[in-house]
Design a protein around this nucleic acid. Structure first.
Lengths: 213, 213, 213, 213
DNA sequence: CATGAATGAGGCTTCATTCAT
DNA sequence: GATGAATGAAGCCTCATTCAT
């Protein structure tokens, strides 16, 4: 009737919700959708299992809320990346290498994405609010590419989405496929020198590719 | 596992095992480890659930058998790839593009790999027979790179594993992350023209990168 | 129940109570006691779930209030039935046929009665105010029968309660058992011609029976 | 493979199934569909809750199996009723009074029917095998009525279904509405003299009605 | 080797109710 | 008198696994 949420109460509700979401993000990222246990999520929380149904309607709703908040969080973080070098070649290398760091910093997110793809995107496909979340990710790239084309230093047959795909593939793979790749090729992706090598490498790859005519 | 089966039944025993393995591969690839149902696997088989325990000891053993046979099968297929062009630049492009095709032809396998990585490689890590399966994958690359280095057309700071990682990242991503990426960027990875573009692109990327000094 | 509400709120209090009662009547009649959901009742109301506990003490109290108000309402409606023909044969036929109509007009009530009988009358048995509610229902019958007996047109071994029971059985059955009977005998009780036939029939039955010596 | 069920095993399976069905019939008849507890059913059984899902798929399947077996059992019992008097008037009276007894002997069944009608017949409507179960119930009546019509002792505007409906209404009501009716009119339907009166009465009603022209 | 029957532990969800404000 | 948040108990169901034959 008042229209105004009472702050003290809302706070608690918000906290409960946030708490559940945070724990659920961890658990889903760790165990996948089917592997995650509603009981485990609840136990790690200040509240009870019942609240999952109160706030999210069920396991599925909770998982979708996790997906949405994870994507939203990651895009926000992405938009804080600063790549304002004037030289497009330097800029693109910076972007590639910062993206590399960014992925390493958000491994849980990448696991969630892998999990969602195992489900063939059936849940994300129902989150309408994410339907337009791609755009910002390529806008910075658009700019850099435009400058590079103007200056004639970049090849012409490449657009922002191509570059984004290449960089994403590489950076995601480091995290998502680390275990099997590491096992088969006896490689440790957490070693500092190897990591530095791999970081420089994605810069080399992108620059080498784009500057070849 | 429990001694020698009687000869006249051996045929059927082998068939039963193979049947289970084939169905289990499909089901695990489709639903993940936790999501897969022992009942479903048994139902889609000529035999009964009991046989899963008889031949594989349980769900876990079956999953590991699936992993092993999948990796073994994929490496065999890889070794049939023919890239015998003398020009290392042409050869490496061919290899990249054939690998691209190869991944698209083995999507179930890529899903299994994604699933196993969600489990942090805990199952593959216990399959000793796969521990050395990586080598053949890079030997062809080794050759091509060696020739390229001899001829001075390839940069020197790159080894076979680097190239393999780059190509794998790209090709795996097409399959493994198709759903979320497709959703966020409104891209259909099954479109023929797009697929041709993406196929050429990985060749461009690898060649552009390797030939930059 | 808890003293006198403040006058200016009394109006609303009464409205809230009535609102709850009306919705609860619908929901209990639709789903039974166990099947009814307190949440659903509250949702379909202008007020909140809390009010159910405030006004009725809980689900059980609400259900009993529903029962009481339903019985009270039905008896009031019954008493408005006008059967003032002097000829007892005509009068009894009229009464039977009007009762038939009356039941068709109050199907929710009949469902509530069926539900309460499933519970072996344990709730109605605790509503003392209903304990004497039967009498008025037979008083009109008493009169008609008395006149018929005086005139020697009705058989002597029948009292008002017998006739009431026969008519009630027939009229209740039309509503209460409509679904199973309709299914098994492929009969549609809502068809107009059939309904007219059935209406006349209860008149025939009662008159035929009473006038047989 | 053999085609022949192995008797010893089948027996147990059949016993388990039958055990569940018998207990479930009691519990559903006692508490209704929503009110019945799967746990309670299982507890009263030689087996475990799990078997309900194994044999019946779930609570709903079990309830439907109960409905089906109850209807089937009741029709079998009905067909054992012997009413072979040549005089149609005597025969119809016998049938009415035996039906009266029959209903009193199968109160759980009548409760189940009441419950199913609360659910608007949604479950019985899905049991195709019951769709033709009505016929036998009216065939005996058909015969008797035919004889009565031939002899000119029965009125002509009545068919078997009408008579069946009248008798059913009366007999069902005794059981189904006993509690509320008994409470409101202070009547005890289990009293022996009242029961005898009520039994004779349905005979009187039917005969009186049918023999009135 | 094979089968149908059986199982216990644990999964997700829903219920009526109460609390703090 | 009213609200949204919270709850514990209990509900139905599903899982991988094993047993008797």
């Amino acid at each position: 009737m008042t229209g105004e949420p009472r702050p003290e109460l809302q706070r608690d509700a918000e906290r409960t919700r946030a708490d559940l979401l945070a724990v659920a993000t961890e658990v889903f990222a760790e165990s996948g959708y089917s592997g995650a246990r509603v009981d485990e999520i609840a136990e790690r929380t200040r509240t009870t299992k019942r609240m999952i149904y109160y706030y999210f309607g069920g396991k599925e709703g909770l998982y979708m809320a996790v997906l949405e908040s994870a994507y939203r969080g990651i895009r926000e973080a992405e938009q804080r990346l600063q790549v304002d070098h004037v030289d497009p070649v330097v800029a693109i290398r910076n972007l590639a290498e910062l993206t590399f760091d960014h992925h390493l910093d958000h491994q849980a997110f990448i696991r969630l994405v892998a999990i969602e793809n195992i489900h063939r995107g059936e849940y994300i496909g129902r989150i309408d609010s994410l339907r337009t979340l791609g755009q910002p990710a390529t806008s910075l790239l658009d700019e850099i590419l435009a400058r590079g084309h103007e200056q004639g230093v970049f090849r012409a047959d490449v657009d922002a989405l191509d570059v984004h795909l290449l960089i994403s593939s590489y950076c995601v793979f480091q995290v998502a496929n680390r275990y099997t790749f590491g096992f088969l090729f006896d490689v440790d992706f957490t070693e500092t020198t190897r990591r530095a090598h791999l970081r420089r490498m994605i810069g080399d790859v992108v620059v080498g590719w784009l500057t070849t005519h």
